[in-house]
Each structure stands twice: as structure tokens, then as C-alpha cells.
Design a protein around this nucleic acid. Sequence first.
DNA 1: AACACGGGGAA
DNA 2: TTCCCAGTGTT
Length: 363
Amino acid sequence: MLAWYDRHRRTLPWRGEDDPYRIWLSEVMLQQTTVAAVGPRYARFLARFPDVAALAAAAWEDVAAEWAGLGYYARARNLHAAAKAVAARGGFPDTEAGLRELPGIGAYTAAAVAAIAFDRPTVPVDGNVERVVARLMAITDPLPGARRLIAPVAARFMEQEAPQARPGDFVQALFDLGATICTPRRPACALCPWREDCRARQEGIQESLPAKAPKAARKLRHGLHFLARDPAGRLLLRHRPPEGLLGGMLEIPGAPWREEPWSLDEALPHAPLPGLAWALRPGLARHGFTHMDLDMRLAEAAAPALPAPEGMVWMTPEAALTALPTAIRRLLPLADPPLAEGAGAVASDPPRARGARRRGTSP
DNA sequence: AACACGGGGAA
DNA sequence: TTCCCAGTGTT
């Protein structure tokens, strides 16, 4: 495995780093997030917060804006909290158990940082390792339950394949094998260093593993949001509660997301400023979360120059574009004139700003 | 053990 | 479209 890794490993921005801060940051960004999505964001984050002291000293607003668009915003909150804890104790814990105490570091990330940054002989079990081990051992139990069978096998590999040598490289070799050879669909078994040992391949069932438990159906919810613009063209945004969905992020204020679609009249009590002439815009913004789909409509009004109400802030469209989470950003192309992604210099193509088509028989 | 929690890239 | 990604925390 290590010989294969030395020959075929991917070149990645966080490869070869020995700074625990950088390893940790990469692992947190990579939680449920693809390498391709993390790449540019990793470099940008480090440019803004070059070390753990800088992150610990930063204001939450700046961390949130930097994380916007990456998703799973509890990661950013926990990252910020963990940075303060690390700065306070004078450095990173160098054991799996010590790392596990930090907010946002669970079983996987503790093992990953311990192995990669501190060469501890432990195996983080991510989606790649689950897939590689399930196939190698022909484990047919469905995930996530099968993890209790997979983890001990992975730990045994570490003992056998990397006896006190290169634990960090061994786990990253497993990642790379899963990402480039032992892929979810159409694995390239002919190129695999373990092709002769793989029980799933021997049985011809590699493409059906790992088995997964069926996931719950996504609910559909509806929202109606109110975009107020002041005479300077700034947008009125609201802070969401610190926990829960999009916790701690900014949003365009609106009526709560619920099962039934909103009419403008019905939603009016939830408008951020009283007495404005709200006009409902045509079209619908749709966003899919992990557990629900969300259909949002947009009402707009011109507002006089006023101080922002409690918990809200006036922000330029340019700043809003980068500070808003993607779900909320999808409303901007519905505005008149549209505040699309390319509103600034770049005339990029507006994302799925699908109009009222689809089966949404709008009011 | 089951849920809540984002978003994007690839097939 | 669907799948799934270097998962964590809460209930």
C-alpha cells in the first residue's frame, strides 16, 4: 500500500504540511465536503487566518463570512471555539483522546489529525475507508451499522501494514485508494494494489458494496422573504439564531419556513420594517438541504434611510453576496434588478434561478 | 440508533 | 436527477 502511495498519491494543498493547525483545518473543511470544493477555500481561509492565534482572535462575523457557502456552519462555530481553546492551552493536543475533547472534533477528525500531524498509529474511518474495507472483506451489512465491523479491521491493517512506520501516509493512502481506484461506482480494480486480496472482487460484488440503509425522504417547505433596499442600495439582512439551521449566519428576513406556501398578505406581519410597499416578485428560488427542500419567494420594497432594527444590518450587495449562505443567496436573482452572482465585475452565469416553472403552481 | 445539519461536483 | 463526499452533535 505504501509503495503504491509513493507512486500514485494525489498532490493536494494540505499534503506535506506538518503544522497541526493546517492539518486540522483541512480535515474540518473536508468533513462531508469534496476535495474539489475545499481546494480554493482552504488557501483563502489560511490567507485570512494564517495560524491558530489569528483565528482565535478573529471576530465571529469574519469567520462566518469566510465560511459562507461551505455549508455545515456548525463546523465554523466549532472551529472558532476550538481555536480559542487551543490558543488558551498553548498548542494542540498531540493525542487522539486530547484532540477528541475539542469542539467539532469527533472520532474521525481526532484520528486523522493524530495520524497525519502526530504520526499516531490510528485509522480514521471515513467514507473512503468504509468502502475500501467493506469491499476487501466483503462486508455486506449496510452502513452506517457496518461501521462497528469495519473499524476494527482498519485498525488491524494499521498494525500489519505500517508497524510503527508512516501512519500518516498509510491513512492517506487509504483515502487516495478510495478516491481514485476503489470509487463508489465502477471501481478500477485492475489498477488496485489489493486486487488479488479483495474478497468482493473475487465474488464479483464490488460494485454493490458498501450496502447502505435507505434514507428518509426529504420534506418540502415554503418561505417568503422580504428584501428592503435603502436609498444607497444597501440590503437589510438579519442574523439567524446561533444554533440550528444556518445558525449564526445572515439571511434576508422573512416568514418562517413551513409546510404551506405563503401569500404576501399572510406573510406581511413577518416583514422587517412596517409600512413599506412590498411587491411580490415573480419566480421561485429552490434550495435542497440534506433533509428538506425549500421553495422561497421574494417580496421587495424601497426603504427610507433608517437605522437597522435590532439584530439586523444594512449591507452592500457586494458584501452580501459573499457573506450569505448559498440557500439565501439563491433569492438574489429574483430581485429587480437582479442581484445575481455576477452583479459585480464577473458576468458569470446565474445559477439555477429557475423561474416559477416546475410543478409549483404558484399563488 | 436516528436525526439535523449545506453545498457542490460527477455520472 | 441522484449519489455521495477526509462527519459531528444532539436526542
